[in-house]
Design a binder for these strands. Structure first.
Lengths: 180, 180
DNA sequence: TCGCACATGTAACGTGTTACATGATTAG
DNA sequence: CTAATCATGTAACACGTTACATGTGCGA
């Protein structure tokens, strides 16, 4: 799944600018499972336009830079659907935190404690954010996804809280570090 | 977190070849949250060797190609720890499945059904795999991670099962497709 | 006998990120 | 007065994947 597909998917819900797409993918309802930067989005939109999958309309605004508003075409919708009809690859997760966790034995307990607590706090913030997103959202598939993300993150937070001490106990104390 | 860090982390548990590292990261206990291919691993090991963070020993085998076995050095351990002491970035997840889910309204119910069932089956297979990994593993931090992965995937599977029909109902029937 | 597991490695390619350029408005 | 938000875009860079080259032994 590349940035083009993401753009098409987002545009299938309504017009948007590159700026909007980036915001949606890094902060919005989709940020849980996608991410894209300007450097990827703008060229992708250019390509989609020249392929006739989207159209561009320039909205001049005074004061602010003018918005390039993109709309998906019928051809674009077809392309999106056909991309979603072919097999999707497995979910992939990248976690520096779990790599750190794996190396617990090499790290001072303090570090593990801090990493766990920081992660827990981040998840709590995310959960709050998801809750507000859920209430401001009337698009059923988005709600389905938001609820999915909520359930997953609640589980994660609960695991971290419940197994916090077990992990910390695996770390180095000042004594064990000195004994090396 | 780049491939070098991953190599150092894996080597901190014992000697391994590039082949071993790749296997561990795509099929092993770490495949849940990292992934790396030969094209990334071999050059990374070369660099680590010239930086003095690992040493290489060549084990000649008859019949099979000779193994290049890498071992982490003290300097390598220091480097690993110092990399793990600095802030880790947030967990990132990429899911084509959730993108598909988001576009439920554009897709035939059949497709949603199939995607859900396939995903559920994949998770069931993964859970079995995790269970066997858990029993063949006596490294406490790895167990902590495996249990984490198990809990997360169980939650995921349960969510998919419990909310299957709700999602499918959002898809297109033949009638709604024809009515467009 | 077909293909997989073992095992290393490279080159071409794809894809995305980061940092920068530009510049007005608005909230603190 | 400072920083952030709005807004588009590019160029250099980083990083990783895919496909290939190479070759043996073993199990179905």
């Amino acid at each position: 799944m590349n940035v083009s597909t993401l753009c098409l998917a987002l545009l299938s819900f309504g017009e948007a600018s590159g700026y909007d797409i980036r915001k949606a993918s890094t902060e919005g309802n989709f940020s849980y499972f996608v991410d894209a930067s300007y450097g990827a989005i703008y060229p992708a939109l250019d390509r989609l336009e020249s392929d006739g999958l989207v159209t561009r309309r320039i909205e001049v605004q005074d004061g602010k830079p003018s918005r390039h508003v993109y709309a998906i075409t019928d051809k674009g919708r077809e392309a999106l659907v056909s991309q979603l009809m072919e097999p999707v690859s497995a979910d992939k997760m990248k976690s520096e935190f779990l790599l750190l966790t794996l190396c617990a034995e090499h790290l001072p307990r303090q570090r593990l404690e801090q990493a766990l607590d920081q992660r827990t706090a981040e998840i709590d913030a995310l959960l709050e954010d998801l809750e507000s997103k859920s209430s401001n959202c009337d698009h059923p598939p988005s709600q389905w996804v938001i609820k999915f993300a909520t359930v997953m993150n609640r589980t994660k937070r609960d695991y971290l809280k419940a197994n916090r001490d077990k992990l910390i106990a695996l770390g180095k104390t000042k004594q064990s570090a000195a004994a090396e």
